[in-house]
């Protein structure tokens, strides 16, 4: 499981960075999305990988640490998802305006 997850994070991050360096705004925004997926998975993995262990305290208040996932990265990842969602939406607006005003979807606002 560790190998699959780390490979997935690596592939997502690598493709994200490659797309980020492309000249079209569409590629850049897809690249940023992929990069943020990689980051979210990475944050999630930093709470260690657990199977079948909920991050919820059972009734009665007793927690068995051996069957308890770390709730913290899950909360962090939620925050990160919300923020990256908002910034992506905002970025989309900026690049649409840029497309409209400059007449090109090149990141420099002009064709080379």
């Amino acid at each position: 499981m560790e190998f699959v997850l780390s490979a997935a994070i690596g592939v997502l991050a690598a493709s994200g960075i490659w797309l980020l360096l492309r000249p079209r705004t569409f590629q850049v925004i897809i690249g940023l999305c992929l990069l943020s997926y990689a980051v979210n998975l990475f944050i999630f993995a930093m709470g260690r990988l657990w199977l079948g262990a909920p991050p919820i305290m059972p009734r009665g208040g007793f927690v068995n640490p051996a069957a308890y996932a770390d709730p913290m990265p899950q909360a962090l990842v939620l925050t990160a998802i919300v923020i990256s969602f908002a910034t992506t939406a905002l970025f989309l607006v900026v690049i649409i305006v840029s497309r409209g005003m400059t007449g090109t979807d090149h990141v420099d606002g002009q064709e080379r």
Binding site: L32, L35, I43, G47, M72, T87, V94, V107, G109, Q110
Partner: peptide
């Protein structure tokens, strides 16, 4: 036009910075 053009690059740069920030924080937390 010029301002929007510069705005696209400013936003992109800082979004990448934010991703780096999260990777750093997650490593520290891990």
């Amino acid at each position: 036009t010029n301002r929007i053009r510069a705005g696209v690059q400013y936003v992109t740069y800082n979004l990448v910075g934010s991703s780096l920030f999260l990777i750093g924080l997650a490593t520290v937390y891990g």
